[in-house]
């Protein structure tokens, strides 16, 4: 337990502190560098990384999303906008006509991925999204599918 005792005479002189401070500085000169040289050097991405959410297709190229709107509902900042329409692709019948994610609103909490009953939306490792206008950061369905790519479906729910 630390004690709040008075400073003694040696401690009241500034000199020992200056020497101590400088010796710290010198020691740190020879320590391994901690700085990450960012654009050239990156941290190894971790498996749970939560970046930008994106839609995925299955191996047949079908959009996995069936526009159930559960992610739109759960999204705390209301960043997702879905409009459903009927699709000819039997037996799915329903799909998203419009699927916009406003990345300015998105807080990357991962709730959409967590609730999705189709495994159609995933958080990707993409996060460097800075853009000079708001419009560039509202991603539509095509852009999201391109970012998400293909995820093979282990369950083949739809035959």
């Amino acid at each position: 337990m630390p004690t709040a005792r008075q400073l003694n005479f040696v401690e009241r002189l500034y000199l020992p502190e200056i020497v101590r401070g400088l010796s710290h500085t010198i020691r740190h000169l020879f320590r391994p560098k901690f700085t990450l040289q960012y654009p050239e050097e990156r941290d190894v991405p971790l498996s749970r990384f939560r970046g930008m959410p994106a839609l995925v297709r299955d191996e047949n190229g079908r959009t996995k999303c069936v526009a159930c709107k559960l992610c739109e509902f759960v999204c705390p900042p209301v960043a997702i906008l879905i409009e459903a329409h009927e699709v000819a692709d039997h037996p799915v019948e329903k799909g998203p006509k419009v699927f916009d994610i406003n990345m300015l609103r998105c807080i990357m909490c991962g709730y959409c991925e967590e609730v999705c009953p189709e495994e159609a939306i995933f958080l990707t490792e993409k996060f460097e999204l800075a853009a000079p206008s708001r419009a560039e950061l509202v991603f539509n369905k095509e852009q999201l599918l391109e970012i998400g790519g293909v995820r093979p479906d282990p369950y083949h729910k739809w035959g």
Partner: peptide
């Protein structure tokens, strides 16, 4: 001039901006 998405954005994203 520059919008940086993320909540909060990773430091890398800020440097990128």
């Amino acid at each position: 001039d520059m919008y940086v998405p993320g909540c909060p954005p990773r430091p890398e994203a800020v440097i990128d901006a």
